[in-house]
Amino acid sequence: MLRWIAAAPAVAALTACGTGSDEPDQLLPLAAAAKADAALADAIARTHSGLAETARELAAARTAHATALQREIDRLAPRDPEDPPSVPDPAPKKAPSSASAAADALRTAAREGQQQAANLVPGLPGYRAGLVASISAGCACLQEVLG
């Protein structure tokens, strides 16, 4: 009995590190959305010079989000370095034709990224909740920049 009690913390630590589930990682859609937002912002930066600086900032932030999420996904489910990332790059994006529609698309991307992340936080364990909450906060800041 004492051995079992002594081993309990080690067992708890091991089970906390893995998902223990055959379900897809909850962070996959969030990472895919971050990559898609970055691709859209890059397309807008190339097409609309008046929005280029702001779009590049959004693209850089969402690329950083996607990278952090991919690292966390890979931490829990290590993959062979020869395999492609579990979150593929999105198809090339086309910027809206008008600057007004492009600005709206950037605002929508930031708002939806913030909401998607915020909705996911309550169901995540410790570190992951902190990571996703910081992404939600980052997207909220982007919304302020975009107006």
Rank of each mutant, 00 (worst) to 15 (best):
A8T: 13
L131G: 00
L14T: 04
D25I: 00
G130P: 04
A43F: 02
E23V: 07
W4P: 00
A118R: 04
L106M: 12
L106Q: 08
R128K: 11
P122G: 10
R75Y: 13
A34N: 13
A140I: 12
L30D: 02
D22K: 04
L124S: 10
D83T: 07
A61N: 09
V145T: 12
A109L: 11
T15H: 08
S100I: 01
A91N: 03
A64Y: 04
A103E: 12
G130K: 00
L27Q: 01
P29T: 09
T19L: 11
S136E: 07
G20L: 14
C139R: 01
A129S: 15
P85T: 06
D42V: 02
C17T: 14
A66V: 08
A34I: 01
P24E: 14
G126C: 04
L2R: 07
H65M: 00
A16Q: 12
E112K: 08
D89L: 14
R107H: 06
A55M: 04
R71V: 12
R71W: 14
A43H: 03
A39P: 00
K94L: 13
L124G: 10
P29I: 03
S136M: 03
A133W: 01
L142N: 08
K35N: 04
G138V: 03
A52N: 06
L120K: 01
R107V: 04
A55K: 04
R3H: 11
R56M: 08
D83F: 14
D25S: 06
Y127V: 15
Q70A: 11
K94D: 09
E144W: 09
L58Y: 05
R111S: 14
T67F: 06
A99D: 14
A105D: 03
T19N: 05
P9S: 09
R3A: 15
L30F: 01
A133L: 08
A117N: 08
D74I: 08
V121D: 00
I135G: 00
L146I: 03
D25V: 07
G20Q: 00
P88Q: 07
V145R: 14
A43L: 09
G123M: 11
P90W: 06
V132R: 01
V145N: 12
A64D: 10
E144H: 10
P122D: 11
K93A: 15
A140R: 10
R128I: 05
R79T: 14
A95Q: 10
L40C: 06
A95G: 05
L106K: 02
A137M: 03
E72C: 05
T15R: 13
A103I: 05
Q70V: 05
E112H: 03
S136I: 05
G138S: 13
A102K: 02
A52K: 11
C141D: 07
I73N: 02
E82V: 06
P29D: 05
Q26K: 10
V145Y: 05
S86T: 15
A33Q: 13
Y127S: 06
V145K: 15
Q26E: 05
S98V: 09
S86D: 12
A110Q: 02
P9I: 11
Y127D: 13
P88Y: 10
L76G: 02
G147C: 04
H48R: 08
T67N: 10
L2S: 09
D22P: 03
P92D: 12
V11D: 01
L131E: 01
A91E: 14
A45F: 10
P81H: 12
S136V: 07
P9C: 12
L124R: 05
Q114K: 07
N119E: 15
